[in-house]
Protein backbone atom coordinates (compact mmCIF):
# COMPACT_ATOMS: atom_id res chain seq x y z
CA UNK A 1 0.00 0.00 0.00
CA UNK A 2 1.11 3.51 -0.79
CA UNK A 3 0.73 6.35 1.64
CA UNK A 4 -0.37 9.89 0.98
CA UNK A 5 2.99 10.85 -0.51
CA UNK A 6 3.17 7.85 -2.79
CA UNK A 7 5.76 6.00 -0.69
CA UNK A 8 5.09 2.45 0.40
CA UNK A 9 4.16 2.13 4.01
CA UNK A 10 7.04 1.27 6.30
CA UNK A 11 5.08 -1.71 7.62
CA UNK A 12 5.11 -3.31 4.15
CA UNK A 13 8.74 -2.39 3.60
CA UNK A 14 9.64 -4.08 6.89
CA UNK A 15 7.71 -7.21 5.93
CA UNK A 16 9.41 -7.51 2.56
CA UNK A 17 12.86 -6.91 3.98
CA UNK A 18 12.22 -9.56 6.60
CA UNK A 19 11.01 -12.15 4.10
CA UNK A 20 14.09 -11.47 2.06
CA UNK A 21 16.59 -11.66 4.87
CA UNK A 22 14.96 -14.75 6.39
CA UNK A 23 15.09 -16.64 3.10
CA UNK A 24 18.84 -16.18 3.06
CA UNK A 25 19.24 -16.81 6.80
CA UNK A 26 17.29 -20.04 6.64
CA UNK A 27 19.24 -21.28 3.63
CA UNK A 28 22.58 -20.29 5.19
CA UNK A 29 21.99 -21.71 8.64
CA UNK A 30 20.93 -25.06 7.27
CA UNK A 31 23.43 -26.24 4.64
CA UNK A 32 21.37 -29.39 4.09
CA UNK A 33 18.43 -27.24 3.07
CA UNK A 34 19.88 -26.14 -0.28
CA UNK A 35 21.36 -29.60 -0.82
CA UNK A 36 17.99 -31.30 -0.36
CA UNK A 37 16.27 -28.72 -2.51
CA UNK A 38 18.84 -29.20 -5.29
CA UNK A 39 18.51 -32.98 -5.12
CA UNK A 40 14.73 -32.88 -5.28
CA UNK A 41 14.63 -30.32 -8.08
CA UNK A 42 17.12 -32.36 -10.11
CA UNK A 43 15.19 -35.57 -9.56
CA UNK A 44 12.02 -34.02 -10.98
CA UNK A 45 13.71 -32.08 -13.77
CA UNK A 46 15.56 -35.15 -15.02
CA UNK A 47 12.21 -36.85 -15.59
CA UNK A 48 11.65 -34.33 -18.37
CA UNK A 49 15.08 -33.47 -19.68
CA UNK A 50 18.47 -35.07 -19.83
CA UNK A 51 20.58 -32.84 -17.66
CA UNK A 52 24.00 -31.90 -19.00
CA UNK A 53 26.08 -33.20 -16.12
CA UNK A 54 28.24 -30.41 -14.70
CA UNK A 55 27.38 -26.86 -13.82
CA UNK A 56 23.98 -27.17 -12.14
CA UNK A 57 23.48 -23.94 -10.29
CA UNK A 58 20.66 -23.31 -7.83
CA UNK A 59 20.55 -20.28 -5.60
CA UNK A 60 18.39 -17.78 -3.79
CA UNK A 61 18.67 -14.31 -5.22
CA UNK A 62 17.26 -11.02 -4.06
CA UNK A 63 15.35 -9.44 -6.88
CA UNK A 64 14.15 -5.95 -6.05
CA UNK A 65 11.82 -6.52 -3.11
CA UNK A 66 11.50 -10.26 -3.19
CA UNK A 67 13.51 -13.44 -3.15
CA UNK A 68 13.79 -15.64 -6.23
CA UNK A 69 14.93 -19.21 -6.46
CA UNK A 70 17.08 -19.14 -9.57
CA UNK A 71 18.15 -22.34 -11.28
CA UNK A 72 20.57 -22.70 -14.13
CA UNK A 73 20.47 -26.27 -15.34
CA UNK A 74 22.36 -27.21 -18.53
CA UNK A 75 20.17 -29.41 -20.71
CA UNK A 76 21.61 -32.08 -22.99
CA UNK A 77 18.29 -32.90 -24.61
CA UNK A 78 14.60 -33.08 -23.88
CA UNK A 79 13.06 -36.46 -23.32
CA UNK A 80 10.69 -37.45 -26.09
CA UNK A 81 7.56 -37.78 -23.98
CA UNK A 82 7.85 -35.88 -20.73
CA UNK A 83 7.85 -38.14 -17.71
CA UNK A 84 9.24 -41.53 -18.72
CA UNK A 85 7.07 -44.47 -17.77
CA UNK A 86 4.00 -42.32 -18.05
CA UNK A 87 2.75 -43.77 -21.32
Amino acid sequence: MLNFFGRSQSRDVAKNRLRNVLAHDRADTSPEFMEHLRDDVMRIVSEYVEVGGQGVDLQLQSVEDHVALVANIPVKQLRRRGRPGNN
Partner: peptide, 16 residues
Protein backbone atom coordinates in the same frame (compact mmCIF):
# COMPACT_ATOMS: atom_id res chain seq x y z
CA UNK B 1 1.22 2.80 14.52
CA UNK B 2 0.03 -0.50 13.07
CA UNK B 3 -3.19 1.15 11.95
CA UNK B 4 -1.23 3.90 10.25
CA UNK B 5 0.91 1.37 8.44
CA UNK B 6 4.04 2.27 10.35
CA UNK B 7 4.51 -0.92 12.34
CA UNK B 8 4.22 -4.61 11.51
CA UNK B 9 1.06 -6.15 12.92
CA UNK B 10 0.83 -9.27 15.06
CA UNK B 11 -0.51 -11.17 12.03
CA UNK B 12 2.45 -10.03 9.91
CA UNK B 13 4.88 -11.42 12.47
CA UNK B 14 3.00 -14.65 13.10
CA UNK B 15 2.75 -15.16 9.35
CA UNK B 16 6.48 -14.71 8.81
Amino acid sequence: MVRKGDMMSVDDIVDI
